[in-house]
Design a protein around this nucleic acid. Structure first.
Lengths: 192, 192
DNA sequence: ATATAAATTGTCAACTATGACAATTTATTT
DNA sequence: AAATAAATTGTCATAGTTGACAATTTATAT
């Protein structure tokens, strides 16, 4: 008996709203404001997720999971010669269904640092995974390079992608997307 | 008559303390906490600088100014063939008197975004200046390249430096400094 | 030593955020 | 329609933050 649980749906609405708030106001947006953005009361947030720390951790959990997942499945069924292009499109925002939100959130979450130790750990894991993932692709495509060299380039590409996102976000002209992508290509070409 | 003004010294103490707080707790550290860190009361902060927004803006002003200044004077009296190394040392943290704080603050301030419009503007200006500065050096050293190409590489190097700083900060091993620096060299070599 | 400018301390009211929990409403099954 | 589990709303006490300003103390030039 009793009624159907809305837990999953509500949780998603809350995290979505929180994400939008973070983009607009930063990680320290009050739960009150998040509730307003989501069109619900703070009590509901408390009911479905919990206190502030739990909300933050839940969000980071979701965002990092989704990001890695998307990146992992990106190459499925794609011929090798198109893989690099696709990866770059994703990392530098040229993809049609590209979800800006996730990357923006990631960028902002970098400020979680000491205040949210779980977040810090999660982000480190995420970036480490991304590097490994990219490095593996490079290794397969340009197999005469050492694993270390592949990792180095992967790290470089990731740096370019992340910074670029931040820069464009503070209002530097979108042209920079193209520049960053081009620099990433130079790095990858050093593997040829 | 009256007593000597401590304005300048106090202002510096406050901004220093604020910087340390931001590193530890984020941009939204309360002025109360900043005061504690600085070993004074909040009233003093209010007296010497003003309200929250003024404190934030003053800090950003100082940090961006100092950063650009240091970078600008870096090449003074340095022979061309050592310039690149020196720039890279500064950007990737190999310099002995390198002041980590400024770069960390910069990284954190990237979250100011919409909340502090003045900050956003200042950061944009700062980064634009840095790019121009680097691009000019590249142009002088490798003059057969187009200005656009030089700018592109400058942007890439800046992205590498900034991201790298963030990554190391969230706890990724310091080895990455070396990797980022190496990638920057690859980019610059594309100008040879 | 005294006038004076500036430093420093202290206090207050208004506002906001949070956590906890009680009370009520709604949907669903039997 | 009655039972029940979950959703939703509402309220409260507590604590923290901020801005404003009054009161006091301290150093310095004359």
């Amino acid at each position: 008996m009793g009624r159907k649980s809305l837990s999953e749906a509500r949780t998603n609405e809350i995290l979505d709203a929180f994400g939008r708030c973070i983009i607009k106001y930063g990680l320290d947006t009050s739960l009150e404001q998040v509730a307003e953005e989501a069109g619900m009361t703070r009590s509901i947030i408390r009911h479905y997720i919990g206190n502030r720390e739990e909300v933050v951790n839940t969000l980071i959990e979701r965002v990092t999971h989704d990001y890695l997942n998307t990146l992992q499945r990106l190459g499925d069924g794609i011929p090798d010669e198109k893989l690099i292009d696709l990866l770059l499109d994703y990392l530098f925002g040229g993809l049609p269904d590209y979800d800006a939100v996730d990357k923006l959130i990631l960028d902002i979450l970098m400020t979680a640092k000491n205040r949210y130790p779980v977040a810090k750990q999660r982000l480190r894991d995420l970036f480490t995974h991304i590097i490994t993932l990219l490095a593996n692709d490079f290794q397969r495509l340009y197999s005469h390079n050492t694993p270390d060299k592949c990792r180095e380039v992967a790290y470089g590409v990731l740096c370019l992608a992340m910074s670029n996102e931040s820069f464009v976000w503070i209002g530097m002209d979108a042209q920079h997307h193209v520049m960053a992508r081009q620099q990433a290509i130079y790095l990858i070409e050093s593997l040829h």
